[in-house]
Design a protein around this nucleic acid. Structure first.
Lengths: 251, 251
DNA sequence: GCCCTGCAATATGTCAGACAATTAACAATT
DNA sequence: AATTGTTAATTGTCTGACATATTGCAGGGC
């Protein structure tokens, strides 16, 4: 590991980069312990707070975890899909909520990607996946569901569908695309009719997957995409009425 | 913003979360300035180093940027696709290189996603996109290209293809899927024949897109996927010969 | 011999105060 | 009017200390 720093740039940033590179290159093995903060401070010839800032940067990227106590320290974290998903959702949510991208573009991307899952899902879905999907469909039909609960169930349904591909990389990408849209979807007021329509399409998807009927699945997915776009028009109309548009803001 | 902290958990982490939520909710507007470190320390009733650790966490996620000087401070950064892509590539590379996922799964996910881009790319590709793709095809045919250069050109070709969808969200996702595989692809030794085969398929893709022929594009993409999987078998065979497998490690 | 308690060691988490470096705005000078 | 100090505000870093958590070991009681 390079330990001489450029005095013109932030030390903590350079130290974080050095350690990060050491992790990526495999110099620091997974679950291996980094030197103690005091050690690192000596090696890089900086103070402990500076080292700590560097470590916090790495911790924020889930590259390391820290543990207190005698045998504690900073350990290289094996990247997990759960953490990566969380990260992805955060990033995607930010991109979508900060007006960087409009509703139509997000919907288009999401359904294009989700459509890509259908062939694999048709071929590999297990009874457990189908059961999850049907459980959500049942939930979506219950009375007294708030819009947010309906949305959450919708997300759960689609995640079950994506998981049916049996490909964690695909699940990881899709989780970002699907979950990040929840704040936008939460702005939609679902009428009883639109709920029924969506639930019917979910039902069609589940049936198509159960029967391995890719054509039917594609059709249902396309219908869902265009229907979601229609509902989105409602959002856009409402947003254009207000001067400042901050989709994610609650107050 | 909530300023009372749970004494059982890390202060710096809680403060980072609070500020992050304030950013996401829109309480702290884009390009807005955060209170000074001293201010934040007073508000949260902690010391300045603790506040700084929190800010470094946020800086590591590209949520804020800091500036020194009289009118300096921490400013909320507008999330950009460039930064998000960089982040995505880093995360995806880590997942792929740390043995969390095998080659076949990564290839399957990548081509499933890329296949999803074809309908949009067929419909929207501009002459500029086609020119980019053809430039890479030409490059791939030149003599004296190293394997790494060939790989880089391959990535550039596919990025051009993805960009042809005109959907930045899609591009963002795909950049992660495509670029993250480069380290793995770099392990492949491309024979003259395999290069020719790949370049031919690229040519077929470009032609199909130029003519808006989705069926042909799908066929070419599928052929590319299965051919890549074949080449990957070579990797697996070579890796199984060595006890420790660290794809990303260079030494 | 075995288990429990208490202490020492080691590490991270936090605090307080100080100084250095950078930058913008303002005042003074030519 | 333009240029040049000067000052104030803010981040970046250092030092030293204390608080807290956790492990391991030693000693005592059973």
């Amino acid at each position: 590991m390079k330990t001489d720093l450029d005095s013109a740039r932030d030390y903590s940033q350079q130290i974080a980069e050095n350690i990060r590179d050491a992790i990526i290159s495999g110099d620091l093995p997974v679950d291996g312990r980094l030197p103690s903060e005091a050690d690192l401070a000596t090696r890089f010839n900086v103070s402990r707070p500076t080292v700590r800032e560097a470590l916090k940067r790495l911790a924020a990227q889930n590259l390391i975890r820290t543990q207190r106590g005698a045998t504690g320290g900073a350990f290289v974290t094996r990247p997990s899909f759960e953490q990566a998903q969380e990260h992805m959702v955060t990033t995607a949510t930010l991109l979508l909520s900060m007006n960087t991208v409009d509703f139509e573009t997000a919907v288009e991307a999401r359904f294009a990607l989700e459509r890509a899952c259908l062939p694999l899902a048709c071929a590999r879905r297990t009874p457990a996946h189908l059961a999850s999907m049907r459980a959500e469909i049942a939930r979506q039909g219950t009375d007294g569901l708030t819009d947010e609960e309906f949305c959450a169930s919708d997300v759960a349904f689609h995640r079950a569908l994506v998981d049916a591909t049996g490909n964690p990389v695909l699940s990881w990408h899709m989780a970002g695309a699907v979950e990040a849209m929840q704040p936008l979807m939460n702005m939609i007021t679902f009428t009883a009719r639109s709920r029924a329509q969506i639930t019917d399409l979910h039902q069609a998807l589940a049936t198509a997957l159960a029967e391995g009927d890719l054509t039917a699945a594609n059709a249902a997915m396309d219908a869902l995409a265009s229907y979601t776009l229609d509902l989105g028009g409602e959002i856009r109309a409402r947003r254009s009425a207000r001067p400042t548009s901050r989709p994610g803001a609650t107050g």
